[in-house]
Every structure is written in structure tokens, then in C-alpha cells.
């Protein structure tokens, strides 16, 4: 039995005439310790999919099974890193993480909790900024806080919803490495949602494209057989990498083309031709 299983998931928003089906017939299974990436266009229903898995939303049809049990509501076993950091602006870095840790380990003493907070802040190398508020931090630092907050709760699975989407390319690369480092330490199950194919290939064991919504569904999966730890520059010359990358991009492009041709409507142009200007002015 898989660690996380999605069976025939459908998700619709609205009712009656306004009903739109965002996700349809989603089937996915993730094994323990696996790092899976789901790649898709913006607006294809990625966030809806994530919220179904972390328990913020319930599927209209089908079931989400986590360790064999249906998912009901959120749980500390599944840590979430949101797209827009979602740090509480009135709390400092330390307080933001402390709040999460306190909820996850209600029986620990305050000193123990503070040690955990300090450890995780140190892990994302933000110790000097522990007493700063989110607005005093850069985007990359804020996302690092969000990573530390999710991991400090020691979840069994980490769900990342486009965690690096709002960052610049350099910070992005650094954070990818940091997340991989942290993941590599205890190999928790991880699900990454992203719109960047390269990021998916660099980080994940498996990539699954999400066909764009409405009626978004998962496409065929692509295995990434590249040894870890991976090196970005070396990877560019790796034949396997090139092949997989091309295959995924081609697949996504084809979907894009399909979408364009689906939206084809015939516009009949009136049969007009310009007047004879030369004769007109004679």
C-alpha cells in the first residue's frame, strides 16, 4: 500500500449552472521517502490539489488516503509550505516558529520548545534574524522561515505549494539546495508543486505533469534516474536529464497546442478589396 494515495479525485467549485470542475479523475500514489514533483501551468488547479492533500479542502468525489486512512482535516503529520510564505506579520521569526512547535508538541516544556525553535532557525541560517519581523526580511529569508516552521513540527510528509515561485533565480537555486539538504537528512516523503520543469527534475525522483484545468488531470509520470546528490552544472550535460527535460516540455507544449486548437472558432472575413486609388485621383 502506498504512503499517500489519491483515488479518482474530482473537485468542483460552485453549484448548479456555475459549477466548474477543477480537478477530474486524479490518481496518484506516493511511496514513503519519495520526492515527487507535480508540474503544471499557472491556474491548472495545483493549489486545489495541494489543499486536498493537506486537508484544507475535501474532494467532491473520490478519496485521499494517507497511510491507508482517509484524510479528514489538517494534521501535524503533513507539514505545508505555502506559496506566499503566510508568516504572521505581527510575530517575529522566532515567535512564528514557536507557535507552530508549541502546537505540535504541547507536552514539551518552554525551554525544550525554545531549543527546537533555535535549532531550526539555525538550520535555515537565520539565527541573527530570529527577533526580526517578517517585513524586515527579504523574500528568500521569509520563505526560509516558512520552511523552518513547517519542518520544526517534524511532519512525516512535507507538502510544498510552489514554495520558490516568488523568488529570484539566484535565491531560488540556493533554496532548492537547502531544501534538498534538509530532506536528504531524514528522507521524509515530499511533494513539490511547481511550474518550473528544471526545478522538478533537479529536486524530485518522479515528475508528474498536471494537465491544465478545468477538468485538470494528471499526465504520464516521468522517472528521474539521476544519482543524488545532483549537481546543477553537471546535470546540464547529462543525457538522461536532457531526454527527460525535453520529453516533459514537449508533453506540456503539446497540451498548450491542444488547448489553442480547441479554442478554434471560424471567423468569416468579408470579401473586400481596396479601391483603385490611382484611378480615384485621376
Amino acid at each position: 500500500m502506498a504512503y499517500l494515495e489519491l483515488n479518482n479525485i474530482y473537485k468542483t467549485y460552485g453549484q448548479g449552472e456555475n459549477e466548474t470542475e477543477v480537478l477530474s479523475n486524479i490518481n496518484l500514489s506516493i511511496e514513503e521517502g519519495e520526492f515527487v514533483a507535480i508540474v503544471g501551468f499557472t491556474g491548472s488547479g495545483k493549489t486545489t490539489l495541494v489543499n486536498l492533500i493537506n486537508g484544507l479542502l475535501e474532494p467532491t468525489k473520490g478519496e485521499v488516503l494517507f497511510k491507508g486512512e482517509p484524510v479528514q482535516g489538517t494534521s501535524h503529520e503533513r507539514g505545508v509550505i505555502f506559496q506566499n510564505y503566510s508568516l504572521l506579520p505581527w510575530l517575529t521569526v522566532g515567535q512564528n516558529i514557536f507557535m507552530a512547535v508549541k502546537e505540535a508538541f504541547p507536552k514539551k516544556s518552554k525551554t525544550e520548545l525554545n531549543t527546537i525553535v533555535a535549532d531550526y532557525v539555525d538550520m535555515v541560517s537565520l539565527t541573527p534574524a530570529i527577533n526580526k519581523r517578517p517585513k524586515e526580511l527579504s523574500g528568500g529569508m521569509r520563505q526560509r522561515v516558512a520552511v523552518a516552521r513547517a519542518l520544526a513540527m517534524k511532519p512525516e510528509m512535507i507538502i510544498m505549494d510552489e514554495p520558490l515561485g516568488a523568488l529570484d533565480a539566484l535565491t531560488r537555486g540556493n533554496l532548492q539546495d537547502e531544501i534538498l539538504n534538509i530532506w536528504g537528512k531524514d528522507k521524509r516523503t515530499a511533494l513539490l508543486i511547481t511550474n518550473d520543469v528544471d526545478e522538478g527534475i533537479y529536486m524530485a525522483d518522479r515528475i508528474i505533469p498536471l494537465r491544465p484545468g478545468p477538468n485538470a488531470t494528471l499526465g504520464p509520470e516521468f522517472k528521474i534516474d539521476i544519482e543524488r546528490p545532483r549537481d546543477k552544472t553537471e546535470m546540464n550535460d547529462n543525457a538522461n536529464f536532457k531526454e527527460t527535460r525535453n520529453a516533459i516540455i514537449e508533453y506540456l507544449m503539446d497540451i498548450g497546442e491542444e488547448r489553442k486548437s480547441e479554442a478554434k472558432a471560424e471567423f468569416v472575413l468579408p470579401d473586400l478589396s481596396p479601391k483603385d486609388f490611382v484611378n480615384q485621383f485621376k
Binding site: L56, T74, S75, H76, V80, L88, M99
Partner: peptide, 21 residues
């Protein structure tokens, strides 16, 4: 809504949710 989602994901109790978020 982001803050409410955080409260849900962290599983804050009602009291905590009101006073902390």
C-alpha cells in the same frame, strides 16, 4: 485567508486562533 489557512494547518484551537491570529 492565508492566516486562517496557517491557523488550520497548525491546528490552533479556537481560543488560540482568535487571540493569536
Amino acid at each position: 485567508k492565508d492566516y486562517i489557512n496557517v491557523a488550520k494547518v497548525l491546528k490552533l484551537g479556537t481560543f488560540q486562533k482568535i487571540f493569536k491570529v
